[in-house]
Amino acid sequence: MPLLVLQRLVSTIPVLLVVAVVVFLMLRVSGDPAAIIAGDTATSAQIEAVRQAFGFDRPIWEQFLAWIGQVLQGDLGESLFTGLPVTTLIAQRIEPTLMLALTTIVFSVLVAVPLGVLAAWRSGTWIDRAVMVFAVLGFSVPVFVLGYGFMYVFSIELRLLPVQGYTSPFEDFGAFAQGIILPTLTLSCIYVALIARITRASVLETLNEDYIRTARAKGQVERTVLFRHALRNAAVPIVTVIGLGVALLIGGVVVTESVFNIPGLGRLVVDAITRRDYPIIQGLILFFALIYVVLNLMIDLAYTMLDPRIRY
């Protein structure tokens, strides 16, 4: 078994390598990277200086090896604008993003899984249809529309919640809780839709199994049948989708943080775009991709706990 876990670990290396190559080549495919970094107003001497400083005059494979060597040592380069290491910037900005991601995942799972089970249990009824309509809606309403819609209703019209901003829970938990409600609702919508759909489909399938009939026949309470027997056996696709959906979540975080003015990693990316601060963009893409791959690897390995039939 440990050998197969190792195999699974090794299989992520080519994926990460591809990510690294894509991120590395991004700057090169669109012309002279030195000119891009030096900016629109740079003279040819300045561009030459940048080329020397960044080593763009060396062969491309040599540049790649040098760069990947740095990355493997945890060095993602420095911001062109502030000169601070990208890793430092990520460390400074990670807390709000992490908090928002956590509240969103917890909230989404708590809402979506029961909704999906309910829809499957009462499949074909209006409850089922309402959940499915919501699932399509959740997929269709753009994150920023939802965010501004919530803001309009709850902050501007009803004046119940703060409009924008973020407070650390370690400073003032009350303010944190108030401020995180709308961003969490906004970001959760698509995630709830996704998880509820999969839960419904997956539970619907297990409800046809013989062991469900057996459980009911022996007089098991319906709630236990649903959650112990059906949901547990339907868990693998649900958990898989929670992991894969993190990609959606990361995209949504970037937008949600802009809407609600939360100083997290998403805002760091957006600010880097406006300033054309490429090391930050590259570093963050690499960072997010790494998180995505590692998270899904962990979920993969966790299948053995959810479903003893799966063996590595």
């Binding site: 390598l17 894509v22 990609a247 937008v255 997010f288 995505y292």
Partner: peptide, 10 residues
């Protein structure tokens, strides 16, 4: 797989 590991919007 590598391309899919990068969030599309980013």
């Amino acid at each position: 797989d590598g391309l899919m590991a990068i969030p599309g919007i980013l």
